[in-house]
């Protein structure tokens, strides 16, 4: 505990830096993480409405039925939105403040589910809604079963 005072302050305040470790069980969603390690994007599919969702869920959030079917979402998708983060933001991996050069994109996959990712094209004026993107993966040995196992999404010619 230390007082937060470079100079004498009128009111005393205390800063409490803490690092708290958690272990979250992915449960039924583990298959998604295991798929990423093999370079595949998997989603669960509702037997009633046919929606594919990422994150995958054991039950359809709309129809409350079990989703036993897993669907490979393919390697390509359409751009939904793209923008750069123009201010220093914490890297969730390191918790260091850093600048971000790469645009953040939302991608609607061939299989119908959507996910977030980075884009290889740094010039946002070249990014258009609906353009085709393809997943570029980290080398297999570097994958951890996380969303950023996909290094970035690369625009492809049609």
């Amino acid at each position: 505990m230390s007082t937060d005072q470079k100079q004498e302050q009128e009111f005393i305040q205390f800063r409490y830096p803490r690092q708290v470790p958690y272990q979250h069980s992915l449960g039924y969603q583990s298959k998604f993480a295991n798929g990423l390690k093999q370079g595949r994007i998997l989603a669960t599919k509702c037997p009633v409405c046919g929606r594919c969702t990422i994150p995958p869920r054991i039950v359809c959030p709309f129809h409350h039925v079990k989703q036993t079917e897993w669907v490979d979402q393919g390697q390509r998708g359409r751009l939904v939105s793209a923008f750069k983060i123009n201010f220093p933001m914490f890297d969730p991996r390191t918790r260091e403040l850093q600048s971000w050069e790469t645009p953040l994109v939302a991608v609607e996959l061939e299989g119908g589910a959507s996910m977030d990712g980075w884009c290889s094209e740094l010039d946002t004026s070249k990014l258009k809604t609906g353009m085709l993107l393809e997943a570029v993966w980290r080398p297999e040995e570097e994958r951890q079963g996380r969303g950023d196992d996909i290094l970035h999404w690369k625009p492809v010619e049609e």
């Binding site: 937060d4 800063r15 958690y22 069980s25 918790r95």
Partner: peptide, 12 residues
């Protein structure tokens, strides 16, 4: 799969 997560906080 168990996801290891460390929550960093810095409350005042």
């Amino acid at each position: 799969v168990i996801a290891e997560v460390i929550a960093h906080t810095n409350f005042l």
